[in-house]
Design a protein around this nucleic acid. Sequence first.
DNA 1: GTCTATATTTGGATAGAC
DNA 2: GTCTATCCAAATATAGAC
Lengths: 207, 207
Amino acid sequence: MSTEPTAPTRRTELLGIAAGLFAEKGFKNTTVRDIAEASGILSGSLYHHFDSKESMVDEILSTFQEELFAAYDAVLASDVDARTKIDRAVRLSFQAIDQHPHEVAIFQNDAGYLGGFERFGYLAERNAQSREVWVSLLTEGVRSGALRHDLDIELTYRFIRDTVWVAVKWYRPGGRHSHVEIADQYLTILLDGISTDPQSPSPRERP
Amino acid sequence: MSTEPTAPTRRTELLGIAAGLFAEKGFKNTTVRDIAEASGILSGSLYHHFDSKESMVDEILSTFQEELFAAYDAVLASDVDARTKIDRAVRLSFQAIDQHPHEVAIFQNDAGYLGGFERFGYLAERNAQSREVWVSLLTEGVRSGALRHDLDIELTYRFIRDTVWVAVKWYRPGGRHSHVEIADQYLTILLDGISTDPQSPSPRERP
DNA sequence: GTCTATATTTGGATAGAC
DNA sequence: GTCTATCCAAATATAGAC
């Protein structure tokens, strides 16, 4: 009994190809014929593996999210201070973009539309779960004094969530910057800002 | 000869309805029948006003972008320091989200797909233009000493661009926060960060 | 597991009456 | 400016042979 990455089955191989197309062109703009052609087979053959186009995205997204949220849970449960947890959660996210760019892109672009169907109700649940993770991290950060006391937690959560994931729009694995470098830069901006000068009327605390 | 806002023609009224649907569900997920129904007419009647569904988004996007970039140009040309220009450009963007949420959403969600067609080549041009605006502002900011000298300009540009526009996903005109408040919060985070503590190994300059 | 052939549905678009 | 009626293309999905 081993947990090593097994050789990709035909099924997972096809899912990977579909994910690439969904990510690139969007779910609705990708036809089953596109997927079949990219896989070197005909559209009818796809239905030997999957019920429908919908069930393909479904499997792509749910598999990815399971993995992702397990990782967040591990960060939340870890025994380090709030700032370190935030650091890790951010790095984890950029790492996810690096390792699963297609899945992240599909979620970013199509979750809004797909979420409208019962079948994809779990997308909204996962969204709520993500909010809980970040709000609790930020709240802990403010309480412990690591973060500015005047932060609007809700607003800051949205900024972080969106600004991290939106990087999937331009980040390319193997490109000029590694995901670690990007996380470094992002954390620097997020924590310290881009300015040399502290704001004149800033209510910033320095002990 | 007046430039006052004229009463909406039937044409602009229909475009507004279409924009709302495109923004909410995506261009491809919105059918001509959807637009017609929301307008209280039948699908065939739409073709009295427009050539095609494509020409509808085209008009929505190009009209908006013309207005937006005129505003950016005004900021660029204004006679103030770099930091103030950046401040104004950011505020301008949040204001655009406030005043044209549908147009911004459509651009965010569908520009990637639409940009693949010749007809929408101007989307890529506008993107390049936007990059020039921000890169020149940031470069000026670093040179003048207002911004940290170790900034990766290209990366910072992408962060700002994406993080500003992505707000359209959750911002609701007339909601809990005004676009001005959101711009305030965002600029504080962008310029000064969310941390109380300056980073230990941060190469931050303070004269 | 893939192909051939085809059923079925959906959606963009048109023509002409009112 | 809208409706009725309809065409046509595209796309999802199915059935059975190989």
